[in-house]
Amino acid sequence: DFALRLASELEDTIHREGPDTIAAMIAEPLMGAGGVMPPPRTYFREVQKVLKRHNILLIADEVVCGFGRLGHDVGCEAYGIEPDIMTFAKGITSSYVPMGAVALSPHVADAVAHGSGGSLFGHGYTFGGHPVACAVAIECLNIYQDQGIKANTRARADELLSGMLSVCRDCWMVGEVRGKGLIVACELVSDRATRAPFAAQAAVGARMCDECRREGLIVRAIGDVIAMSPPLVITSE
Protein backbone atom coordinates (compact mmCIF):
# COMPACT_ATOMS: atom_id res chain seq x y z
CA ASP A 1 0.00 0.00 0.00
CA PHE A 2 1.47 3.31 -1.14
CA ALA A 3 0.25 5.31 1.87
CA LEU A 4 1.69 2.76 4.30
CA ARG A 5 5.05 2.93 2.53
CA LEU A 6 5.07 6.73 2.76
CA ALA A 7 4.16 6.59 6.45
CA SER A 8 6.95 4.09 7.02
CA GLU A 9 9.42 6.39 5.26
CA LEU A 10 8.25 9.26 7.48
CA GLU A 11 8.80 7.18 10.60
CA ASP A 12 12.27 6.18 9.40
CA THR A 13 13.09 9.88 8.96
CA ILE A 14 11.84 10.67 12.45
CA HIS A 15 14.01 7.93 13.95
CA ARG A 16 17.02 9.09 11.95
CA GLU A 17 16.67 12.73 12.98
CA GLY A 18 15.41 12.07 16.50
CA PRO A 19 11.79 12.74 17.56
CA ASP A 20 12.91 15.30 20.12
CA THR A 21 14.38 17.46 17.32
CA ILE A 22 11.10 17.70 15.37
CA ALA A 23 8.39 20.09 16.53
CA ALA A 24 5.86 19.59 13.75
CA MET A 25 5.12 18.40 10.25
CA ILE A 26 3.62 20.95 7.86
CA ALA A 27 1.41 19.74 5.00
CA GLU A 28 -1.29 20.96 2.66
CA PRO A 29 -4.40 18.74 2.58
CA LEU A 30 -4.01 18.81 -1.20
CA MET A 31 -0.67 20.04 -2.49
CA GLY A 32 -1.34 23.10 -4.63
CA ALA A 33 1.79 24.84 -5.90
CA GLY A 34 3.63 21.51 -5.82
CA GLY A 35 1.63 20.36 -8.84
CA VAL A 36 -1.98 19.85 -7.62
CA MET A 37 -1.33 16.52 -5.91
CA PRO A 38 -4.28 14.98 -4.05
CA PRO A 39 -3.02 12.65 -1.31
CA PRO A 40 -3.55 8.89 -1.44
CA ARG A 41 -6.87 8.01 0.21
CA THR A 42 -5.36 6.72 3.48
CA TYR A 43 -2.24 8.90 3.53
CA PHE A 44 -3.14 11.32 6.30
CA ARG A 45 -4.72 8.60 8.42
CA GLU A 46 -1.44 6.70 8.45
CA VAL A 47 0.72 9.82 8.82
CA GLN A 48 -1.26 11.01 11.83
CA LYS A 49 -0.69 7.66 13.54
CA VAL A 50 3.06 8.09 13.13
CA LEU A 51 3.07 11.68 14.35
CA LYS A 52 0.99 10.89 17.43
CA ARG A 53 3.30 8.02 18.37
CA HIS A 54 6.19 10.48 18.49
CA ASN A 55 4.30 13.46 19.95
CA ILE A 56 4.88 15.57 16.83
CA LEU A 57 2.34 18.22 15.88
CA LEU A 58 0.60 18.36 12.51
CA ILE A 59 0.25 21.82 10.96
CA ALA A 60 -2.23 22.01 8.08
CA ASP A 61 -1.53 24.70 5.49
CA GLU A 62 -5.02 25.77 4.40
CA VAL A 63 -3.93 28.77 2.33
CA VAL A 64 -5.03 27.09 -0.92
CA CYS A 65 -7.56 24.51 0.27
CA GLY A 66 -9.49 26.51 2.85
CA PHE A 67 -12.76 28.42 2.50
CA GLY A 68 -14.54 26.36 -0.12
CA ARG A 69 -11.88 25.41 -2.65
CA LEU A 70 -12.42 21.70 -1.91
CA GLY A 71 -16.10 22.08 -1.06
CA HIS A 72 -15.59 22.37 2.70
CA ASP A 73 -14.79 25.09 5.21
CA VAL A 74 -11.26 23.70 5.34
CA GLY A 75 -9.48 21.13 3.23
CA CYS A 76 -8.83 18.98 6.30
CA GLU A 77 -12.52 18.05 6.33
CA ALA A 78 -12.19 16.56 2.85
CA TYR A 79 -9.52 14.10 3.99
CA GLY A 80 -10.38 13.40 7.62
CA ILE A 81 -7.37 15.30 8.94
CA GLU A 82 -7.29 16.38 12.60
CA PRO A 83 -4.50 18.97 12.72
CA ASP A 84 -3.04 20.61 15.80
CA ILE A 85 -2.62 23.94 14.00
CA MET A 86 -4.10 25.40 10.81
CA THR A 87 -2.82 28.38 8.83
CA PHE A 88 -5.03 30.49 6.56
CA ALA A 89 -4.73 33.28 3.99
CA LYS A 90 -6.04 34.20 0.53
CA GLY A 91 -9.59 32.83 0.75
CA ILE A 92 -10.19 34.24 4.21
CA THR A 93 -10.66 37.67 2.57
CA SER A 94 -11.03 36.44 -1.02
CA SER A 95 -7.64 38.18 -1.39
CA TYR A 96 -9.24 41.63 -1.46
CA VAL A 97 -7.23 42.59 1.64
CA PRO A 98 -3.99 40.95 2.81
CA MET A 99 -4.64 38.76 5.83
CA GLY A 100 -3.28 35.61 7.38
CA ALA A 101 -4.55 33.69 10.37
CA VAL A 102 -3.64 30.76 12.59
CA ALA A 103 -6.06 28.42 14.37
CA LEU A 104 -4.84 26.38 17.34
CA SER A 105 -6.30 23.24 18.83
CA PRO A 106 -7.14 23.54 22.55
CA HIS A 107 -4.05 21.69 23.78
CA VAL A 108 -1.73 23.94 21.77
CA ALA A 109 -3.58 27.10 22.79
CA ASP A 110 -3.49 26.03 26.44
CA ALA A 111 0.27 25.44 26.24
CA VAL A 112 0.84 28.95 24.83
CA ALA A 113 -1.44 30.52 27.42
CA HIS A 114 0.26 28.63 30.24
CA GLY A 115 3.67 29.68 28.97
CA SER A 116 2.51 33.30 28.91
CA GLY A 117 2.38 33.25 32.70
CA GLY A 118 -1.13 34.53 33.12
CA SER A 119 -4.50 35.08 31.48
CA LEU A 120 -2.96 36.94 28.52
CA PHE A 121 -2.41 34.86 25.37
CA GLY A 122 1.18 35.92 24.84
CA HIS A 123 1.54 35.50 21.12
CA GLY A 124 1.05 38.27 18.59
CA TYR A 125 2.69 41.03 16.62
CA THR A 126 2.22 44.68 15.73
CA PHE A 127 -0.39 44.32 12.99
CA GLY A 128 -2.36 41.44 14.51
CA GLY A 129 -6.13 41.81 14.45
CA HIS A 130 -6.14 44.72 12.00
CA PRO A 131 -9.74 46.01 11.99
CA VAL A 132 -10.00 46.52 8.22
CA ALA A 133 -8.70 43.05 7.38
CA CYS A 134 -10.91 41.48 10.04
CA ALA A 135 -13.99 43.33 8.77
CA VAL A 136 -13.35 42.10 5.22
CA ALA A 137 -12.79 38.55 6.47
CA ILE A 138 -16.06 38.54 8.42
CA GLU A 139 -17.97 39.82 5.39
CA CYS A 140 -16.35 37.20 3.14
CA LEU A 141 -17.30 34.43 5.54
CA ASN A 142 -20.88 35.72 5.55
CA ILE A 143 -20.95 35.75 1.74
CA TYR A 144 -19.57 32.21 1.55
CA GLN A 145 -22.38 31.11 3.85
CA ASP A 146 -25.21 33.16 2.34
CA GLN A 147 -24.39 32.31 -1.28
CA GLY A 148 -23.80 28.60 -0.70
CA ILE A 149 -20.24 28.68 -1.98
CA LYS A 150 -19.28 25.28 -0.57
CA ALA A 151 -22.34 23.64 -2.09
CA ASN A 152 -21.57 25.23 -5.46
CA THR A 153 -18.02 23.90 -5.33
CA ARG A 154 -19.28 20.39 -4.65
CA ALA A 155 -21.83 20.67 -7.47
CA ARG A 156 -19.30 21.96 -10.00
CA ALA A 157 -16.39 19.71 -8.97
CA ASP A 158 -17.48 16.60 -10.87
CA GLU A 159 -18.37 18.70 -13.91
CA LEU A 160 -14.92 20.29 -13.93
CA LEU A 161 -12.98 17.07 -13.50
CA SER A 162 -15.11 15.04 -15.92
CA GLY A 163 -14.93 17.87 -18.44
CA MET A 164 -11.15 17.95 -18.19
CA LEU A 165 -10.96 14.18 -18.59
CA SER A 166 -13.18 14.36 -21.66
CA VAL A 167 -11.18 17.15 -23.28
CA CYS A 168 -7.84 15.48 -22.59
CA ARG A 169 -8.85 11.86 -23.26
CA ASP A 170 -7.34 11.67 -26.74
CA CYS A 171 -4.52 14.17 -26.27
CA TRP A 172 -1.21 12.34 -26.67
CA MET A 173 0.70 14.75 -24.43
CA VAL A 174 -1.56 14.58 -21.35
CA GLY A 175 -0.29 11.92 -18.97
CA GLU A 176 -2.75 12.51 -16.15
CA VAL A 177 -5.69 14.67 -15.13
CA ARG A 178 -6.15 15.09 -11.38
CA GLY A 179 -7.72 17.32 -8.79
CA LYS A 180 -10.47 17.77 -6.25
CA GLY A 181 -13.13 20.40 -5.75
CA LEU A 182 -12.39 23.43 -7.90
CA ILE A 183 -8.69 22.86 -8.39
CA VAL A 184 -7.59 20.57 -11.21
CA ALA A 185 -4.52 20.01 -13.33
CA CYS A 186 -3.29 18.11 -16.34
CA GLU A 187 0.29 16.87 -16.49
CA LEU A 188 2.01 17.16 -19.85
CA VAL A 189 4.33 14.31 -20.87
CA SER A 190 6.41 13.40 -23.90
CA ASP A 191 5.18 9.80 -23.90
CA ARG A 192 1.73 8.94 -22.61
CA ALA A 193 2.48 5.24 -22.19
CA THR A 194 5.60 5.69 -20.05
CA ARG A 195 4.70 9.11 -18.58
CA ALA A 196 8.19 10.31 -19.53
CA PRO A 197 8.51 14.07 -19.00
CA PHE A 198 9.51 16.62 -21.59
CA ALA A 199 13.02 18.03 -21.41
CA ALA A 200 13.06 20.96 -19.01
CA GLN A 201 14.62 23.28 -21.59
CA ALA A 202 11.63 22.74 -23.89
CA ALA A 203 9.49 24.76 -21.43
CA VAL A 204 6.38 22.98 -22.68
CA GLY A 205 4.28 23.99 -19.68
CA ALA A 206 5.14 27.68 -20.01
CA ARG A 207 4.40 27.61 -23.73
CA MET A 208 1.07 25.88 -23.14
CA CYS A 209 0.22 28.44 -20.46
CA ASP A 210 0.92 31.30 -22.89
CA GLU A 211 -1.25 29.67 -25.54
CA CYS A 212 -4.13 29.18 -23.10
CA ARG A 213 -4.00 32.82 -22.08
CA ARG A 214 -4.05 33.93 -25.71
CA GLU A 215 -7.31 31.98 -25.98
CA GLY A 216 -8.71 33.70 -22.88
CA LEU A 217 -8.16 30.85 -20.41
CA ILE A 218 -6.29 31.74 -17.23
CA VAL A 219 -4.13 28.83 -16.08
CA ARG A 220 -0.90 28.36 -14.17
CA ALA A 221 2.10 26.40 -15.34
CA ILE A 222 3.84 24.48 -12.54
CA GLY A 223 6.66 23.04 -14.57
CA ASP A 224 4.79 20.94 -17.12
CA VAL A 225 1.66 20.71 -14.98
CA ILE A 226 -1.15 23.01 -16.13
CA ALA A 227 -3.25 23.98 -13.11
CA MET A 228 -6.68 25.58 -13.03
CA SER A 229 -8.53 27.07 -10.06
CA PRO A 230 -11.74 28.66 -11.37
CA PRO A 231 -13.77 31.14 -9.29
CA LEU A 232 -15.86 29.48 -6.59
CA VAL A 233 -18.97 31.13 -8.08
CA ILE A 234 -18.49 29.44 -11.46
CA THR A 235 -21.63 27.99 -13.05
CA SER A 236 -22.23 25.05 -15.36
CA GLU A 237 -22.55 27.46 -18.28
Rank of each mutant, 00 (worst) to 15 (best):
D1H: 10
A3H: 14
A3I: 10
A3W: 09
L4C: 09
L6D: 07
A7L: 04
E9W: 00
P19K: 15
T21K: 15
T21Q: 15
A23I: 06
A24H: 10
A24K: 01
I26N: 12
A27W: 11
E28Y: 09
E28N: 11
L30I: 09
G34R: 14
V36T: 11
P40C: 11
P40H: 12
R45C: 11
E46I: 08
K49I: 14
K49L: 14
L51D: 11
H54S: 06
I56F: 00
A60C: 04
D61L: 11
D61Q: 10
V63F: 11
V63Q: 14
L70N: 02
D73Q: 09
D73R: 12
V74K: 05
A78I: 07
I81M: 14
I85T: 04
M86I: 08
T87M: 14
A89Q: 07
K90Y: 12
T93P: 01
S95L: 10
S95I: 14
P98E: 06
P98S: 13
M99G: 02
G100F: 07
A101T: 07
V102Y: 10
V102A: 08
L104V: 00
L104I: 00
L104F: 07
S105M: 08
P106I: 00
V108M: 04
D110K: 09
H114E: 15
F121V: 03
F121N: 02
F121W: 02
G122F: 00
G122S: 05
Y125F: 10
F127V: 05
F127G: 05
P131A: 04
V132P: 01
V132W: 13
A135V: 01
L141G: 08
G148I: 04
A151P: 01
T153W: 03
T153M: 07
R154W: 05
R154A: 10
A155F: 12
L161V: 02
S162K: 11
S166I: 00
V167F: 12
V167S: 09
R169Y: 13
C171I: 15
C171R: 10
M173F: 14
G175R: 02
E176Y: 06
R178I: 03
G179S: 03
K180H: 08
K180I: 06
K180V: 10
G181I: 04
L182N: 04
L182S: 03
V184P: 00
L188W: 02
A193K: 14
A199S: 06
A200W: 11
A202F: 04
A202K: 13
A203F: 06
V204Y: 07
V204C: 08
V204G: 09
G205T: 07
A206N: 12
C209W: 10
C209Q: 15
D210W: 12
D210K: 15
E211G: 09
C212S: 07
C212D: 07
R213S: 13
G216T: 09
L217Y: 11
L217A: 12
I218F: 04
I218K: 02
A221Q: 06
A221E: 03
I222F: 03
V225K: 05
V225C: 10
A227E: 01
M228N: 01
P231G: 05
P231E: 06
T235H: 04
T235P: 03
